[in-house]
Write a protein that binds this DNA or RNA. Sequence first.
DNA 1: TAATAATGCAACTATATGGTTGCAAATATA
DNA 2: TATATTTGCAACCATATAGTTGCATTATTA
Lengths: 107, 107
Amino acid sequence: MQDKITAVLKAIADPTRREIFHVLLIASTALPITQIANQFDISRQGITKHLKTLEEAGLVVIDTKGRERFCNANATPLKEVNQWLQGYEQFWNNSLSNLGDYLDKNS
Amino acid sequence: MQDKITAVLKAIADPTRREIFHVLLIASTALPITQIANQFDISRQGITKHLKTLEEAGLVVIDTKGRERFCNANATPLKEVNQWLQGYEQFWNNSLSNLGDYLDKNS
DNA sequence: TAATAATGCAACTATATGGTTGCAAATATA
DNA sequence: TATATTTGCAACCATATAGTTGCATTATTA
């Protein structure tokens, strides 16, 4: 397998999956798969595959009720990405001068 | 092609590329390709391919001097990822799984 | 009970990805 | 000049990815 952050990054590295995630996050209610698929140009099975990737990353939670599977977005795994990013925050403004700070703290 | 943020996310979605990026960022000087490759178990050509992906995402800048190509990390493109993430920050403190965290800590 | 709707599963295709090896070209050094 | 070093290019391989279609199954509803 792959580690957690890799799973999350791979999930959001695809534009369609970012869109699906966004649709689910701003939806006021959980959406069944067919209803999600209707909002995209690709087939229901295509959407299902993307949902599986998102689910494995923890970004989507699926709740089966009868014949329907209701999907909800869960933003929590993004925390991990945020943490990884923050480790580099000091570099993206003034990389050279902050490299010194980093070395001071980590050597 | 793909848009900028997709390129950056795909670049950092691979653990080896995250490692390369990290090595270059904390290196006190720009490193030629062979020297980077020596720090990894995969072949020089494998590293070269990863460097190309990182370069296309703007995360690595390469400066040719004579027969050598010196590589430097550039964290700036991570800003874009950070911005995308911040759009969801409000959700990861206020989601169902955090209700779970709350209940865990207070019952 | 019969028809309809939502879904999963499986097979298939095309292309991307992560990796390798061999060789040629350019540059540096003895 | 002869040799060694750094690199790029090309071919190749195995697997993953993004997508499709067809069909069977399970629920719902008329």
